[in-house]
Amino acid sequence: MRAADIMTTSLLTLSPDLPVATAARMLAERGVSGAPVLDKDGKLLGILTEGDLIRRLAAVTEKPRSWFLGLFGSAAAQADHYARSHGRLVRDVMTTAVETVGEDTPVEQVAALLEKRNIRRLPVVDREGRLVGIVSRADLLKVSLEAPPAAPAAASDAEIRRALSRAMREQPWIDAYFIFPEVQDGVVTIRGFCRSEEVKRGLRVLAEGIPGVREVRIETDPTPPVLLGAP
């Protein structure tokens, strides 16, 4: 599935020359926390977010920095902060460092970017940089709530065992030398030594993700101190 398949296309968009007060009222009336800012050709210039508006509102209480302290800061950074916190037009207040994705970007990559950047939405642009939609966390949530894919064809116990062993070797948090999985009739039983409840849960989730597994049983014991390297 691609970004184009889940993106929202009915959007509130703003002009860079719009007064900030008007833009804030439009966001409030639509009940959205941000809107893309476009030039006359539909190309993305930035995004006006509620964070931008709150920054501007908070600036009312800021005290002017002393001339002496200003010598130790970047003049460009100080000027940018002043413009963004005192600007009257959207172009002066908006966020311009905006992460974007293309229409063919896989939804998994979109989700990873939202998580990595800790942001709520990603504009989707075409090859000319024109905005075509936005993918939000809510759009991804709708995808996750859709019916799960059909169960894969049943696998033999030997196939499950091999797949599980490969998956375990790929995870650094698994003490593979002390974990012994068994498979019978699609039921995975994991025995051996396990250092924590979190690792047990991870093992269960990992095993449940192997095609053909019908059930997972964790029958491990606490890892003895001698195996943990204790004196």
Rank of each mutant, 00 (worst) to 15 (best):
50 E>G: 04
59 A>I: 08
64 P>C: 03
70 G>W: 09
55 R>I: 08
59 A>D: 02
54 I>Q: 04
23 A>T: 05
45 L>R: 11
45 L>S: 05
40 K>R: 13
35 A>R: 00
58 A>G: 01
46 G>I: 13
32 V>Q: 06
57 L>A: 11
69 L>P: 00
59 A>V: 07
45 L>V: 03
64 P>M: 06
30 R>F: 07
66 S>G: 09
69 L>G: 00
66 S>Q: 00
56 R>F: 07
23 A>S: 06
29 E>T: 15
56 R>Y: 04
49 T>C: 08
47 I>V: 15
37 V>T: 11
68 F>W: 07
34 G>D: 02
58 A>T: 04
45 L>D: 05
62 E>F: 09
32 V>E: 07
28 A>W: 12
41 D>L: 13
35 A>H: 00
46 G>E: 12
51 G>K: 09
46 G>Y: 14
26 M>C: 07
70 G>L: 11
53 L>K: 02
70 G>A: 11
51 G>V: 11
33 S>R: 13
51 G>Q: 11
53 L>N: 02
40 K>A: 14
43 K>Y: 04
29 E>Y: 14
40 K>N: 12
44 L>Y: 06
62 E>G: 00
68 F>Q: 04
26 M>A: 15
48 L>I: 06
59 A>M: 06
38 L>H: 11
46 G>N: 13
28 A>L: 14
26 M>I: 04
43 K>P: 00
29 E>S: 15
41 D>G: 07
42 G>W: 11
48 L>N: 04
54 I>S: 07
32 V>F: 08
25 R>H: 15
64 P>K: 06
56 R>E: 01
45 L>Y: 09
68 F>L: 12
54 I>G: 02
41 D>E: 14
24 A>L: 15
31 G>F: 12
62 E>R: 05
57 L>T: 03
70 G>M: 10
51 G>C: 10
63 K>R: 08
27 L>M: 10
30 R>Q: 14
39 D>Y: 11
64 P>F: 06
68 F>N: 01
61 T>V: 04
53 L>A: 07
48 L>P: 01
55 R>Y: 06
35 A>D: 00
70 G>I: 08
67 W>S: 03
53 L>D: 02
39 D>N: 14
52 D>E: 06
68 F>M: 08
68 F>I: 10
55 R>A: 12
59 A>N: 02
49 T>V: 09
40 K>E: 13
46 G>A: 14
56 R>K: 12
60 V>R: 03
28 A>H: 13
38 L>G: 10
29 E>F: 13
52 D>G: 05
34 G>C: 03
69 L>Q: 03
61 T>I: 01
34 G>N: 01
40 K>H: 13
35 A>K: 00
37 V>Q: 11
70 G>N: 09
55 R>N: 10
26 M>K: 15
65 R>T: 03
35 A>P: 00
64 P>W: 04
